[in-house]
Amino acid sequence: MQDFLARYYELDQLKKSIEAELEKMRRILLDKFPEPVEQTFGAYRLKVYEQDRGSFDLGKVYPLLPSDEWRLFVSNPNNANIKQLVKQGVLREDQVAGAYTAKPVRMIAVKEIGGTT
């Protein structure tokens, strides 16, 4: 078991190191490409794009819910729960529109092209 735990610890430390290096490289790429771009560099294609991430203001959503049972359903608040209520017709999209705030997040995708993946 000690060997197993040692390997787990080793991999966890490696993961942290990789994540830190990726974040550093991500910041460099985003500084170099401040606007959305899709460009090829040798065997790699870089795509920098924006994706909307948002969240619901629960203080605005709770009063819209028809009953305490529905408030309990949303007691573990996340976007998926509220979007599900809209999908099921418990809430209307126009009701929750004012409770949703979108924030653009810059994303990076790097793919190898013409090689093996």
Rank of each mutant, 00 (worst) to 15 (best):
E19Y: 02
L64W: 00
L65T: 02
F4I: 11
A43I: 03
P66W: 09
E21P: 02
E69T: 13
F41Q: 15
E23G: 15
L58D: 00
E35S: 09
K15P: 01
K16V: 01
A43S: 06
L29S: 07
Q39N: 10
K60C: 01
G42W: 10
R53V: 09
L65P: 00
V37K: 06
V37Y: 05
D52R: 11
L64T: 00
T40I: 07
R71H: 02
K32A: 07
D3C: 08
D12Y: 12
Y44V: 03
W70Q: 01
M1R: 14
V61Q: 00
R27N: 13
F4L: 14
R27L: 09
L58I: 03
R45W: 11
D12P: 01
Y44A: 06
F33V: 03
P36C: 11
A20Y: 09
W70L: 01
Q13L: 10
V48L: 01
Q39D: 10
A43C: 04
P34H: 13
R71W: 00
E35N: 12
S55H: 13
P66Y: 07
R7T: 14
S67W: 04
P36R: 05
F4H: 11
V61E: 00
T40R: 12
D12W: 07
P66K: 14
E10V: 02
K24E: 07
Y44M: 11
G42F: 07
I18A: 12
K60L: 14
Q2F: 06
Q2G: 10
L64D: 00
